[in-house]
Amino acid sequence: MPTPDVNVLDDPPQIGSRAVPPGLGRYLAIYAAFWRNSLVREMGFKINFILWIVVEMLWFGLQLTFMAVIYSHTDRIASWTKWQVVLLVGANHFVQQLFTALFMNNCVKLSENVRSGGLDFMLLMPVNARFLISLRHVDFGAFVNAASAVAVMVYAGVQLGLQPSVVQLVGAAVLLLLGLSIHYSVMYILACISFWTVRAQGIVWGYYNLFQLARLPDEAFRGMFRMIFTFVVPVLLVTNVPVKVLLEKLSSWSEMAWLGGMSVAIFWLSEAFWRWSVRHYGSASS
């Protein structure tokens, strides 16, 4: 019997011809299907796939060039030396590329789905709608770029003579993932604005601009600017805190606590806003 993509109600949900286990296993199986579909789609345009990797590499190179030019005229920005900043730029690129790989396209597409009424279909599926909306498309090229970012980080670490302990490495990795979750939650909130103004894509891309802040050393900023981007939209925490863990530059433990606390708080806020937004969804065109 041919089955629809995801079956409804009585029968256990199936993907293709595979029976899907219940609970968390079910979600993992669905997520694996997302990866398969995305991979098939990407491989349909191989040259384009490679060209996008080239584009992202160029932008990464640009950021590094900028720092190289600055450091050809000065020794330090606040207390940050050249290779410390390279490590920071690398870490930021890593988080940004992971975000692009897993979430970016999905967040941008939400406003399209609100406009076209395609969201109706997703809301009707017997899975968590936010799961479906957030994770459906995977951008594989971005993983390649994330790997190049790791290579740059390792090189900078060698230049600095860093010998991080296992605790430091694991800590930095966990903190980077918390930072990733901050980017995702903020972007999801902004994408939800499309329930009111149809043209939310501009806002979503606008936040992408703010990503740039995360690759600058937080010490360069002070006053209102630093307060806002630490405590309200904490982009300055996202990469600075994990990199400071590696460099042993952390001024106090509270910085890590803030990053963790903010990532939980903003995720909760995004979930609340999402639920409230869906209640205002009037559907379009259907």
Partner: peptide
């Protein structure tokens, strides 16, 4: 777009100030 564009510009100016201070 113009408003969002001002944030990185402002950040860049602050960065350069920090460079000149050092």
């Amino acid at each position: 777009r113009a408003l969002f564009g001002l944030v990185p510009l402002f950040a860049l100016i602050l960065l350069w100030r920090a460079i000149y201070e050092g």
